[in-house]
Structure formats: structure tokens, C-alpha cells
């Protein structure tokens, strides 16, 4: 029983990271319909700029702020320069996708060239182990869970309570109509990229504190950003959030019986199971299929 509780706590903390990855990518995809593979690059940029700012002598908090800023700027640059150009040229989905892959590996390797391939860690987080009975966890787990929860809550608040947030939902809901009532969709695409990048930065920051940053985290991040969105159902941000937690729990509780190296496999099984049993995703409210 204690073990199960322990695994649940571990699962929720990792699930919080997946939650952030899922909603950040899911928001961008819902608004812009761009398969933003370079989201992994944003993740790496955020992680390494946090490290960079700390090396410059900033405190952990300031490094976090710096990493968020860097991620937002990067995300907006990719949209504003690359995707916008391709969309103007009527590029197909494949073209956009390949350009995004190109961006991911270019950025990753530029960073690797500048920083080297060793694991970069962030110092200064006062890790404290909290023990309740036999269950032990640390305050970083709490911070992860709280960050994800608060950010998700704020995002929902933003989307439902503010003017620009509602405009974003309008673009998601009916892009043609948004144009008709005079919403400049290009601006909102940029906004979606800014927000999505803003949300992914804390995930990168926390992962860097917990296990350190390496270059190939970008691929890992992009996989765990897609999976919650597909499992939760394309178009549903709460779905993506919940799916993120579910993946985290499944992986963690799976360790009970399976060696921890096979975690990716557990997520994959969940993914395939959902694809077979409910192709629209757990909470997908629309089937996007080729229109006849």
C-alpha cells in the first residue's frame, strides 16, 4: 500500500511535466494546426538558457525568468519567421513538418556546440525530503505538481476570462468565422506560440533541476508533448492535461512490475490502446477526418 502511494506520488510529479508539455503543444496545435516539431527545440532552449543565466551569476529564480523569456522569444521567432513564411507560400503539411524537424536538430546541435554534451544541472534548489509514514518524497515533487496545477489553472482562466484568451478560443472554435469578424489570425497564431513556449519553459526548468539537461531532451520532450494530446483527444486541453497525468501514473505504477528502463514502452502501450479503443482520444469531442 505504501509502495503504491509512493509510486502514485512519483507518477503525479512526472505526470505534471507531461501535463505541461501536453497543454503547451496542444494549445499551439489547436490554434494554428501546425505540427510544431520544433517545440522540442523550445524545451532545450529553455533548459540551457536557465543554465546559462545561472552561470552568469543570476539566482535560480532569475534564471527561471530568463529561461521563460528565452523560450517565448524563440517560439515566437520560429512562428514569425519560419512558419509564417511557409504558410504564405502555401506549403503543405509535410513541408512545414520537415522544416520544423530541421529547426529542432539545428538548434539542438548549435547548443551542443556551445555548451558541450555533458549533463548540465541547476544548483541552488533546496531539496528537502518529506516523509509521511513510509512514503518519502521531496519538495521538488511538490513544486512540480503545484507549478503544473497553477499554470493549467491560469491558462484556463486566461482562455475563459480575458479578451485575448477568448479570441484565441474563437480561433480554435471557428477559424474562418474569426477572420470574418475581423480577428487578425496571424497575431493570434503568434500569441499561441508565445503562450505555448511560456508553458513549456517551466517544464524544462524543473526537469533540469531534477535530472539535469542534455541535448537529446528535445526529442524526449516532443514525444511526451504529442502523446498526451493524442491520448487526451486533439482539441481538448483539459483532456491533454489529464492524459499527461495518466501517462505519468501509468509509467510510475508500471515500475512496480516492470524494470524502470522500459518506461517509454508503458506510455506506448497506453497510446496504442487508446488509438485502438477510442480513436478520437479519451476526451476528443470531434473526429477530425477528411471532409467529404
Amino acid at each position: 500500500m505504501d509502495l503504491l502511494l509512493q509510486l502514485t506520488i512519483n507518477g503525479l510529479s512526472m505526470g505534471s511535466i507531461y501535463l505541461l508539455l501536453g497543454i503547451s503543444w496542444g494549445l499551439i496545435f489547436a490554434v494554428t494546426r501546425t505540427f510544431h516539431f520544433a517545440h522540442g527545440a523550445t524545451f532545450v532552449v529553455a533548459a540551457y538558457s536557465a543554465y546559462f543565466f545561472q552561470q552568469l551569476g543570476f539566482s535560480l529564480i532569475l534564471a527561471a525568468v530568463g529561461s521563460v523569456l528565452a523560450a517565448v522569444l524563440f517560439g515566437m521567432a520560429v512562428e514569425g519567421i519560419l512558419y509564417r513564411y511557409l504558410r504564405k507560400a502555401f506549403a503543405s503539411h509535410l513541408v512545414v513538418f520537415v522544416a520544423a524537424i530541421g529547426t529542432l536538430i539545428t538548434v539542438e546541435n548549435l547548443i551542443a556546440m556551445g555548451f558541450g554534451t555533458d549533463v548540465k544541472t541547476l544548483e541552488g534548489f533546496p531539496i528537502k525530503v518529506i516523509k509521511i509514514g513510509k512514503v518519502g518524497f521531496n519538495n521538488l515533487h511538490v513544486v512540480m505538481f503545484a507549478t503544473a496545477g497553477i499554470l493549467f489553472f491560469l491558462l484556463m482562466l486566461y482562455l475563459h476570462r480575458t479578451k485575448t484568451g477568448k479570441a484565441l478560443r474563437a480561433v480554435i472554435s471557428n477559424p474562418e468565422m474569426a477572420e470574418v469578424i475581423g480577428i487578425d489570425t496571424r497575431k493570434y497564431f503568434l500569441l499561441a506560440f508565445a503562450l505555448g513556449s511560456l508553458l513549456v519553459a517551466p517544464a524544462a526548468f524543473l526537469v533540469t533541476i531534477e535530472r539535469g539537461a542534455t541535448i537529446d531532451l528535445g526529442h524526449w520532450a516532443i514525444l511526451y508533448a504529442f502523446m498526451p494530446v493524442i491520448i487526451g483527444g486533439i482539441g481538448s486541453l483539459p483532456g491533454a492535461a489529464l492524459a499527461g497525468l495518466i501517462i505519468g501514473l501509468a509509467e510510475s505504477i508500471g515500475i512496480w512490475k516492470i524494470s524502470s528502463q522500459w518506461q517509454v514502452g508503458i506510455a506506448f502501450v497506453v497510446l496504442v490502446a487508446v488509438m485502438i479503443l477510442k480513436p478520437t482520444g479519451l476526451f476528443g469531442f470531434r473526429v477530425y477526418r477528411g471532409k467529404i
Binding site: F35, H93, F97, H219, W220, I222, L223, F226, M227, I230, I234, V264, G265, A267, F268, L271, V272, M275, P279, T280, V287, Y288, R289
Partner: peptide, 18 residues
């Protein structure tokens, strides 16, 4: 290969990792 193109991207990416 059932409903959407995105599913194949995600599944194959996961397979690569596995």
C-alpha cells in the same frame, strides 16, 4: 494508420524511442 496522419507520426516516433 487508421484515423489521422498525426497518429502515425506519434506512434512511429514512440517506436523509434522504444
Amino acid at each position: 494508420i487508421r484515423v489521422r496522419d498525426e497518429y502515425l507520426i506519434v506512434t512511429t516516433l514512440a517506436l523509434l524511442m522504444i
